[in-house]
């Protein structure tokens, strides 16, 4: 009986240690950031950029907001895999040019817990934003 009990306790302790080691090994999330390809849009206003930026961010992440006072920076966070804190973020800058505007994309993600990398995130957001037309 004593041997059985000690066996169970040992088993419990071993499984606990093994689990902690496994989870610890993957819990150190690496932060990644990439700059996506910028999109130059001629003959359009900065307001057009804002509308497209907000829509693109909300289609991939959530709750896009304006950042800064000039209304030309857009930001959204993502929550991946049920994590309780923000683990991804994308910033879109709308820059007025001499002939229209340019949109730039800065994407970041912690992997894990994010299932997609910062690079993938930028690809999705840029595609959702659309081209120059």
């Amino acid at each position: 009986m004593t041997r059985t009990s000690s066996y169970r306790v040992t088993l419990f302790a071993l499984s606990l240690l093994a689990s902690i080691a496994l989870v610890s090994a993957r819990s150190s999330a690496a932060l990644d950031m990439v700059v996506g390809a910028h999109v130059a849009v001629p003959n359009k206003t900065i307001a057009d950029c804002g509308v497209r930026a907000q829509a693109a961010l909300n289609s991939v992440l959530q709750n896009a907001i304006k950042a800064g006072d000039d209304g030309a920076n857009w930001l959204a966070f993502g929550k991946a895999g049920g994590a309780t804190q923000n683990s991804a973020a994308v910033i879109i800058h709308c820059l007025t040019t001499d002939n229209g505007y340019v949109a730039t994309f800065t994407c970041s993600a912690e992997v894990p817990p994010n299932p997609v990398t910062a690079s993938d995130l930028c690809t999705k957001i840029t595609a959702a934003f659309g081209g120059a037309s």
């Binding site: 966070f77 804190q85 923000n86 973020a89 970041s108 993600a109």
Partner: peptide, 8 residues
């Protein structure tokens, strides 16, 4: 996990 903080 740590959280992502953004400055822009």
């Amino acid at each position: 996990h740590a959280a992502v903080d953004v400055g822009t």
